[in-house]
């Protein structure tokens, strides 16, 4: 019987591992297709393969795409910094203090999760234009994206920090650490992986956001809005090349992270 249950456990583990693998395949197949296509002459019908680097040469020459990439990065960074700061303060306060406002504040921080991108996009567009009289620009797009990203960041931080022992902060304070010093010396070194996770996720969400950014950027191009705009004439080859390059960077980053974890140089918050 014990042997039977061991087999069942192994089967379960293997089965769910397989599901995970299939999920990765499902998620990455279209991306692999995009990368494959970026090396082809014919973007619409890349079979059989006819390899060329044309897309990359075009990309190197195109200032519009450089600008769009830069804007996307800027938008992502600005929004991610805002999200991470706001979410860190929010999640720390909620986990650390027992206040009668705790529930209300948590609901407010989670609100943006319950509003679709599209709605965030159009409502901030109308609010900025009609009520504040502001045109769309990088700032308004950053803020609109950050509002949405804040609750993702908040959720991630809450979940990862739920087990943090806040009495460590008490200890630091008794031994003479002022609040900021205490954060820097004790809290931050322990919670930084949660902050990093929140930062990465909110960066990704803003970097390639179409529906919020589209309505709030005015005429400023970013990668997703330029893709949307070029739909009418067929997607530009530069887009494929850029996507391939971005994924290349991601792959390199992940490989580095993997190696750091593999050789236990940085544990990213994992405790054996």
């Amino acid at each position: 019987m014990a042997a039977g249950s061991r087999v069942a456990v192994a089967a379960y583990k293997g089965g769910s591992g397989l599901l995970l693998t299939l999920l990765y395949l499902f998620l990455y197949a279209p991306i692999v297709y995009v990368i494959y296509t970026s090396f082809n002459k014919d973007l619409i019908w890349p079979f059989p393969p006819d390899f060329t680097l044309d897309a990359y040469f075009k990309l190197a020459d195109s200032s519009t795409y450089h600008e769009a990439l830069w804007n996307s990065v800027l938008l992502g960074l600005g929004s991610a910094i805002l999200c991470t700061v706001v979410a860190t303060m929010g999640s720390m306060s909620i986990l650390k203090y027992r206040s009668r406002w705790r529930g209300l504040i948590a609901v407010i921080y989670l609100c943006p999760l319950f509003v679709a991108d599209l709605l965030v996009g159009i409502s901030s567009l109308l609010f900025n234009r009609q009520v504040l009289g502001l045109p769309g620009n990088m700032g308004s797009a950053m803020i609109a994206n950050a509002v949405h990203g804040t609750s993702f960041a908040f959720l991630i931080m809450i979940a990862q920090m739920a087990r943090y022992d806040w009495r460590l902060d008490d200890a630091a304070m008794v031994f003479g650490a002022k609040p900021l010093r205490c954060f820097w010396e004790v809290t931050l070194p322990i919670i930084w992986p949660a902050m990093l996770g929140a930062f990465i996720i909110s960066f990704i969400l803003a970097f390639n956001n179409l529906e919020i950014s589209f309505y709030n950027l005015g005429a400023i191009p970013t990668l997703p809005t330029i893709a949307w705009g070029s739909l009418r004439f067929g997607l530009g080859a530069e887009l494929f090349a850029l996507a391939a390059l971005v994924n290349g960077v991601v792959l390199v980053t992940f490989t580095i992270m993997y190696l750091l974890m593999r050789y236990r140089i940085v544990s990213f918050g994992h405790r054996d």
Partner: peptide
């Protein structure tokens, strides 16, 4: 505040 009191503590 605690950090200005100069007491030691064992938790």
């Amino acid at each position: 505040p605690p950090y200005a009191r100069g007491v030691g503590m064992v938790f």
